[in-house]
Amino acid sequence: MKQSTALTIATGVAAAAIGGLFFYARATRPPVINPDVPEPAKPVELARYLGKWFELARHENRFEKGLDGVTAEYALEDERIRITNSGCQSGPKGERSSASGRAIVVDEGTNAKLKVSFFGPFYVGDYWVLDHGDDYDWSIVGEPSGRYLWVLSREAKPAAAAVEALLQRVEALGYDRWALRITRQG
């Protein structure tokens, strides 16, 4: 009887812990800034998309909280895309940290929809290239829930007119541009 009671308590504690993690994950997600996320505007040539991007703006999220000087580098590796994201705490000249992940293309017709994993095989997030410049000089990246958005550029500090045009494009895609955090680059 005691062993059965201990097992019941252990099972209850485990269920509470899992439930707590579920509610924490849901509670720490950013709010929706676009309830009607559009399909990607055009196909992506992966060879042209690879390389280094500078983050110009993002919808703030817990895994990038307070980071500046943020970059993302994409490289083809064993039929997958290797991603290295890095950023600095306390401004663009702060201590740099990085995270590596992998992505696979899930829409081979356009190459604009990927699944990304930074935390091993159990976490897979959507990564949609919603739009990009014809010369691959800028990119707007989101996902279907409308909670995450990134504005990327090949230049760390593009001209103010180019940034304004990108923010207007963000609005045209249905996002609240004023909900974005501008990323300071060094």
Rank of each mutant, 00 (worst) to 15 (best):
M1T: 04
M1C: 02
M1K: 04
S4A: 09
T5P: 01
L7C: 05
I9K: 02
I9M: 05
T11N: 06
A14K: 06
A14Q: 01
A14E: 00
A15G: 04
A17E: 06
I18Y: 04
F22N: 04
Y24S: 05
A25K: 10
A25F: 11
R26L: 03
P31Q: 03
I33C: 04
I33W: 08
P35F: 05
D36S: 14
V37S: 10
P38D: 01
E39C: 01
V44M: 13
V44N: 11
Y49M: 09
Y49H: 10
G51I: 10
G51Q: 10
K52C: 12
W53Q: 09
F54G: 00
R62V: 15
E64V: 02
V70D: 05
A72G: 00
A72C: 00
E73H: 05
Y74C: 05
A75D: 03
E77I: 15
I81G: 04
N85K: 02
C88T: 12
C88Q: 09
Q89I: 10
S97K: 13
S98R: 12
S98T: 09
S100E: 12
S100I: 05
E108K: 09
G109W: 13
G109V: 12
N111D: 12
N111I: 11
L114M: 02
L114P: 00
F118K: 06
F119G: 00
P121K: 09
P121R: 10
D126T: 04
L130G: 12
D131E: 13
D131P: 09
H132P: 11
H132N: 15
H132Q: 15
D134W: 02
I140C: 07
I140T: 06
G142A: 08
E143W: 03
E143M: 06
E143P: 02
S145W: 10
V151N: 15
R154D: 05
R154M: 07
R154T: 07
E155R: 06
K157I: 08
A160N: 08
A161S: 14
A161K: 09
A161F: 05
A161P: 03
V163T: 13
L166Q: 14
L166W: 13
L167K: 12
L167H: 07
L167W: 09
A172N: 07
L173D: 03
Y175I: 03
Y175S: 06
Y175E: 11
D176Q: 12
R181D: 11
R184K: 07
Q185N: 12
Q185F: 10
